[in-house]
Design a protein around this nucleic acid. Sequence first.
RNA 1: CGGGGCGUGGCGCAGCCUGGUAGCGCGCUUGUUUUGGGUACAAGAGGCCCCCGGUUCGAGUCCGGGCGCCCCGACCA
Length: 437
Amino acid sequence: MRLTRSLIPTIKETPAEAQIVSHRLMLRAGMIRQQSAGIYAWLPTGLRVLHNIANIVRAEQARAGAQEILMPTIQSADLWRESGRYDAYGPEMLRIRDRHDREMLYGPTNEEMLTAIMRDSVQSYRDLPQMLYQIQWKFRDEVRPRFGVLRGREFYMKDGYSFDPDYASAVASYRRMMLAYMRTFQRMGVRAVPMRADTGPIGGDLSHEFHILAPTGESGIFYDSDFEHMDWIHSLPGYDDPSEIDIFYDQITQTYAATDEKHDLNSWADVPELRRREGRGIEVGQIFYFGKKYTEAMGFSVTGPDGSKIHPEMGSYGIGVSRLTGAIIEASHDDAGIIWPDAVAPFRAAILNLRQGDATTDKLCEDLYAGLGDAALYDDRPARAGEKFADADLMGHPWQLIVGPRGAATGQVELKRRRTGERAELSLTDALAKVLA
RNA sequence: CGGGGCGUGGCGCAGCCUGGUAGCGCGCUUGUUUUGGGUACAAGAGGCCCCCGGUUCGAGUCCGGGCGCCCCGACCA
């Protein structure tokens, strides 16, 4: 993308309303613009990050055997009356009426709707298990939205649902999802730590929250430093072998991690002192097993092997996709701006033409741009070097390709790594190879 | 939902107490200048002062009502 033809409205001064760093940086980098309290428009670079995160989620869901669907944002109140949650949910649920005065709502979650879909479509235990998910906008009318996209009222969320014929199968689904989540967050370039959690209004008796480690996190967390070394991408347990999944699950759940509310001093004392870590975390996902709560309430049953009716066991699995954009920034930034992990960055590299209009630098930049295509943001503004450096640092591209008259004369490009500040003078070919590696 | 604060060119703010031609910095446009970390100079453009009502000869300023947004706390993917 050429910067002169893009809507990337970076700003130098910090907007007054933004208190925390990710909110400030998202506004300053031109990723989002606020429309109402807790409601944001996503501009081109912000949306690219949102899509990158969503696509990592998709890839890992597919690997775990989940199928993507898309359900409507607007739901009927009657559906929620079936489960009893229409009255139970409270003012967080945005209730609306259509022109015929029918009661509707903007979905805060979708257990009821998918249970109804399954009820209409699945009659036999042979059709189970099923794991389905969507990535869709949700609305929860928070009393006090804040922290930009970390605590918005409208948010983009991956919500998945499992349906199993019996308890053992349901637990296996739960464990598979936990593995998928660990891989998902690791691929995004951040560390997530799973912790036992309360089930809250969704109900059920098994739940974990996933927190990203960030000094500005909302909750205090305690964890074993072993979590910092676990690698679920390069040493992937097999999804198809339940015993491998169980080994994974045991390793995760036997390693200490707790939010300050659930912190247990006795178990903490069992963690070797050198491995004890105290920090702060941002919750970016939560998974639940809740059994037959909805299938019974809504009358979803299948015929079992012996011909009797059984209510499937359910679990649900959430990832805050829009929240993750902010959470990753909280975990990865410096005084100059965002430092995007490669996997989610809106562009792999920025091309900085320090002397726009100079035939030599222009040519070199155009060649780089041709080699990188959509992976690059070409800063072709007729602006001063300092401004281009500042904006590139602010936007946080993993690589900066700096082209000035000095090096351009000999065909050299300066390649800077945003995260480390490392710089190297390279030929065009070598620079491209390194960025695309 | 309790407590506090703020709405003035795109952004950050002053002006309000004590009513009388709407200002500053940044940004934007044009020209010159500068050219590896937000250059300097000059000339410009741009404002229903959140909305409605009241007081007054006159309201950004005073009074009443509304709306919006932010912060602290309780609550939450």
